[in-house]
Structure formats: C-alpha cells, structure tokens
Simulated assay, not measured.
Amino acid sequence: MFYYLIRKLLFLIEPEKAHTFILKVLNFKIIQIIMNFFLKSLPLKKNRYMNLIFNNKIGLAAGVDKNGEYIDSLSKLGFGFIEVGTVTPLPQYGNKKPRLFRINEKEGIINMMGFPNLGIDNLIKNLKKSKFTGIIGVNIGKNKNTPIENAVNDYLICIEKIYLYADYIAINISSPNTIDLKKLQYGSELKNLLKNIKKKQIEMHKKHYKYVPIAIKISPDLSKKEIIYISSQLIYYNIDAVIATNTTLDYSLLSTKQKTKKKGGLSGLPLQKKSTNVISILNKHLKNKVTIIGVGGINSLNSAQEKISSGADLIQIYSGLIYHGPKLIRKIIKGL
C-alpha cells in the first residue's frame, strides 16, 4: 500500500526523471539504513546454472542500472542476480528525449532509449566498488555509430574489457532502438557473431583461468522457425544461456485506445504471453543444453511460475518492479 502511494507521486514526474530520482534516493545512506531495518532477509534458495550459484531465481533485468551505479542499493531488494547495462565500448547519449513512456492502464512501458551509457570503462570502475556478493551480469551492445558489418568488434572489445569483472556477459542483439541491430539474429550474421564470441570466450578463459558464461538476448518478434534456428546455433556454438526476451515492436498487443505513435520497444504486461511463448519454443528445442532466462511482463507470482513452467531456469524483472514495487520480488522469491 505504501509503495502505491509513492508510485502515484512518481507517476506525476516524466518517466526517465522519475527513474533517475528513485535510484538516487536508494543510494542515500539514510534510505540504506531504513531498508536494512524494514526488509527482512529472505531465505536462500540456491540454484546452479551456467556453473554459477544463484541465491534465488529472481534477477533484475538490464536497463534499470545502465552504468552499474546502484548495484548495492538494488541488491537489498532481494535479487539473486543483477544485470547491468546495456553498455557499449564508447560512451553515448542515446536517442533524443523524451524517450521513455508509460502505458499505465496496461502496466506497459515504451522505451526509445538507444543504449545511453557512460561506456565500458566507467562500468568497470563501478563494478570494482560494488560490495554485492550475488551474481552480476553485464549486458553489452554496439555503439550507434558502429556500422552493423563491424558490430562484432564492439562486442569483442567489451568482452575483453569486462571479462574479469562479470559473472556472466549478455550479448544484446535484439534491441529495437539501435538501427539494424536485430539483423545479428539471423543467418550468416548470427553464425559469425556466435563463432567470434565463442572464440574470444575461449581465448579469455585460457588467459585468465576463469570461465565467464555468455548469454544471448533475443527478440520476442521472431517467428517459430527463426527461434528454432537460433536454438540450433546456440547449441552448435556451445553458448551458455539465452535471455528471452527483449522488448517488442508488436503494438497489436495494445488496445486501440492504448495505441501510440511512439515506436520504441514495448515491455511490461503486454509482452507477457509473447515472451512466454518464445520460452516454450526454446525449451523444446534447446533440450536442457542451454540455460533459459525468462523476462517480459512478470507482474505476479503466477506469471513468474508460468515462465518457469514454460522452461525458464531463471527469471528477470523490470516493468513489474516499477508498477508493483519491491514487495513483488519478495513475494515471488517466497512463493517459488
């Protein structure tokens, strides 16, 4: 009830400003003390995936903490793992503001962010400061000005730099807000990407005697045939995990009243069934050879259980946290 009162006030503010404000508030020391006092520790429900030990199955999706500035504050909410980013080799502003929009009646969010971040080197500095003992994933992408034919190089640069500081690395090739990025999910471009990323992973493993799993984040707008093809390539190149899914461009998920002229990625409740369907197809064709991380529209214990029963090993939350607050995380962890 308390969070819903706060939400009413926050929703009076432009979404991106509200997002930044609440993260900064979480970093205040007095808020940290209050959180430590009121938030009781949750029971550990350890699980092993990608040869990593997760304290529970609930993670924070990429996009909330792009530069890794709020990891310790966010971890107090109960997450078993936190994924930061998307981060690129060089800092970039992203797309023009306003670029984040709420669809309150549908618990949806449309984002046109375009990977705004302070760059991979800045993220490394923040990761070094973090005291979070859980799993940290780093979501990486290509810079806007990098031609798509050179995109693989951006991912390899990020992998090499972040390798020693990440528990796993997520390869974002499915954001609808970076021109041509989604082409990397198809045909020879996907093969070339996976081949080079796997080669780099093996190289870094031999160099540092540390194995850092790789996850590929895919779109919910793929056809069944395309999902099956991606599944075969993930197995062939021995990729550790797949994150299903990113945001959608399918605005048919909104009613006529809710439709908008904004053309960014839609997340939240409208995406729930579509992302779960992708998970089901992946589960059938990956045959337990690749870890599945389910994300998209999780707003209750039931929707979390549905993702897991459809084949997700782990799940992530973003929009659900905005609409329902920290209590949602704790309810899911206890319920699962």
Rank of each mutant, 00 (worst) to 15 (best):
K96M: 13
V138R: 03
N122W: 04
L77G: 01
S130Y: 05
M112R: 15
E107A: 10
E83L: 10
I109N: 03
T133G: 02
P116E: 14
Q92S: 08
G119T: 06
I120K: 13
G134R: 03
V138A: 13
I140D: 12
K129Q: 13
P98H: 09
P91L: 05
L100N: 09
T88Y: 02
E105A: 15
P89C: 03
N139I: 06
Q92H: 15
I82T: 08
L77R: 06
G119S: 13
K129W: 01
N117G: 15
K128Y: 12
K97N: 07
E105I: 06
V84Y: 02
F115K: 01
K128E: 14
F115H: 08
G141Q: 14
G137H: 11
G94V: 05
E107H: 11
S130N: 10
L118P: 03
T88C: 10
I140M: 08
K128I: 15
I103K: 01
S130Q: 05
N104G: 04
I135D: 11
R102L: 09
N126C: 09
F101H: 01
K129I: 04
N95P: 06
N117C: 12
N139M: 05
Q92L: 08
K96D: 11
K131N: 14
P98D: 11
S130W: 04
P116Q: 15
I109F: 00
K129V: 04
I124K: 14
G94L: 10
M112A: 14
I120E: 06
N111P: 00
F115I: 04
I103P: 02
L77T: 04
G114L: 00
I136M: 08
G85A: 07
N126Q: 00
P89H: 02
N111W: 04
V84L: 01
F79P: 04
F79C: 03
P98Q: 02
G119F: 02
F79Q: 03
N111C: 02
G134W: 13
L100V: 14
G85Q: 07
P91Y: 12
E107V: 05
N104S: 14
L127I: 07
G114Y: 00
G114C: 01
N126Y: 09
G78D: 08
V138W: 09
L127S: 07
P98V: 00
K106H: 03
R99C: 08
K125M: 06
F79A: 03
L90T: 11
V87N: 13
P89Y: 01
G119E: 09
L123G: 05
I109T: 15
G85R: 07
G114T: 04
I120H: 10
K129H: 04
M113W: 15
L123T: 09
K106Y: 10
N122M: 01
L77D: 07
F115Q: 03
P116T: 15
E107C: 11
F81V: 10
I110N: 03
M113F: 15
K131E: 08
E105M: 01
V87A: 07
K96E: 15
L123K: 14
R99W: 14
E105L: 02
